[in-house]
C-alpha cells in the first residue's frame, strides 16, 4: 500500500466520523474531577474548564490554538511530515494501523502541530501536542517538527512556546523515539545560545520522555492547574515503592511547591501571561 493510499483512505475515514462531531453540542458532559453534569456549550464557553470545580479538561489542538493564539493568526508549518515505521513494529496492533487510527481521529499525521502565530500580539513559534494522536507520544515526526520550529525561531528572532500533553516516548519507534529527547534538547541549546526565550506549558498529562527533555527545559515553565506532570508513571512508582502515592503527587501544584516549575496559570489567563512574558524577554 502506498503512502498516498493511506492518506486518502484515512481522509474518508475521518469524513465518516464527521456526523459524530456535529452531534457533540447536544451532549451533556460529566466532569472527570467533580462528577458534575454540565451542558456542552457551557463548558465550551468556559474554555473547557469545569465551572463547578475548575478542572482543566483535556482539549484538542484547535481549542488550544483558540485559547492561546490571536484569532486567525496561526499559520501551520511542516504539516506534511509523516511517520514511517522504521522497525515494522507490531504489538497487539501494528504501528501502521495505530497511525491510521490516529489520522482518522485527528485528521493529522502526528501528535504535534507546529507553526507561527501571534500570542497577545507577539509573533511566536508555537508547538502544540495533541493527546488524541497516540497519547501525544513523541516520535520522529514530533521531534523533527520541534527542531524545525526552533530553527525558525532562531532565523526570525522569535520566541518559542511548546504546549505539551503527552504520555512520553512512542514505544513503536523504540530508540528512534528515545533519541528525540536528545535531538530536541540539543536544538534548545542553540535557541538558548541565540538568547531567545522558550516558554514550556505543561498540560495534563506531561510524562516520561517528554517531561525528561524539552518540557522541563523552558526558560519559564508554566503548568495548567491540576495537570499530571512527572517522569515515572503512577503504576511504576507504586510497584517500586510498594505503597500508594500521596494525595496530589505529581500534580502541577505539587511541582510548584517543590520548586520544579515557575507558575500555575489558568486557561483564562494563559494568553496574556504568555504574551507579557514573551514581550519582556524579546525585543517586542
Amino acid at each position: 500500500m502506498g503512502l498516498m493510499d493511506l492518506f486518502s483512505r484515512s481522509k474518508s475515514e475521518s469524513n465518516s466520523a464527521q456526523p459524530k462531531l456535529t452531534e457533540a453540542p447536544t451532549h451533556w458532559i460529566k466532569c472527570k474531577s467533580c462528577q458534575a453534569l454540565m451542558y456542552y456549550k457551557e463548558v465550551e464557553a468556559q474554555e473547557h474548564v469545569c465551572p463547578k470545580c475548575g478542572y482543566h479538561m483535556r482539549i484538542g489542538v484547535d481549542q488550544r490554538l483558540a485559547i492561546i493564539t490571536d484569532q486567525g493568526s496561526f499559520v501551520e508549518f511542516d504539516a506534511s511530515l509523516a511517520p514511517t515505521d522504521p522497525l515494522t513494529f507490531v504489538d497487539k496492533k501494528s504501528y501502521k494501523k495505530r497511525i491510521e487510527e490516529g489520522i482518522a481521529k485527528t485528521a493529522r499525521h502526528s501528535s504535534v502541530v507546529s507553526g507561527e502565530a501571534l500570542i497577545d500580539g507577539v509573533p511566536t513559534q508555537v508547538v502544540i501536542f495533541d493527546f488524541a494522536f497516540m497519547g501525544g507520544s513523541l516520535g520522529s515526526v514530533e521531534g523533527e517538527k520541534i527542531v524545525r520550529a526552533i530553527n525558525r525561531a532562531i532565523a526570525k528572532r522569535q520566541g518559542l512556546v511548546i504546549v505539551s500533553a503527552s504520555g512520553g516516548a512512542r514505544m513503536q519507534e523504540s530508540t528512534f523515539s528515545l533519541f528525540q529527547m536528545s535531538k530536541t534538547s540539543a536544538a534548545l541549546a542553540k535557541l538558548g545560545e541565540a538568547k531567545l526565550p522558550y516558554i514550556s506549558v505543561l498540560t495534563d498529562p506531561t510524562m516520561g520522555g517528554v517531561s525528561a527533555s524539552f518540557a522541563m527545559l523552558g526558560d519559564i515553565i508554566i503548568a495548567e492547574p491540576g495537570a499530571l506532570i512527572g517522569f515515572a508513571g503512577e503504576r511504576v512508582i507504586k510497584q517500586t515503592i510498594g505503597s500508594d502515592l500521596p494525595e496530589g503527587f505529581q500534580r502541577a501544584e505539587f511541582l510548584l511547591e517543590k520548586g520544579s516549575i515557575d507558575m500555575v496559570v489558568t486557561r483564562g489567563q494563559m494568553r496574556k501571561t504568555l504574551g507579557d512574558l514573551l514581550r519582556m524577554m524579546t525585543a517586542h
Binding site: A212, A215, M216, A232
Partner: peptide, 12 residues
C-alpha cells in the same frame, strides 16, 4: 522511579 526522585525533579 520513586517519590524522592520525582520530588527532586528526575525529569529536569
Amino acid at each position: 522511579p520513586g517519590l524522592g526522585a520525582e520530588e527532586r525533579n528526575q525529569s529536569e
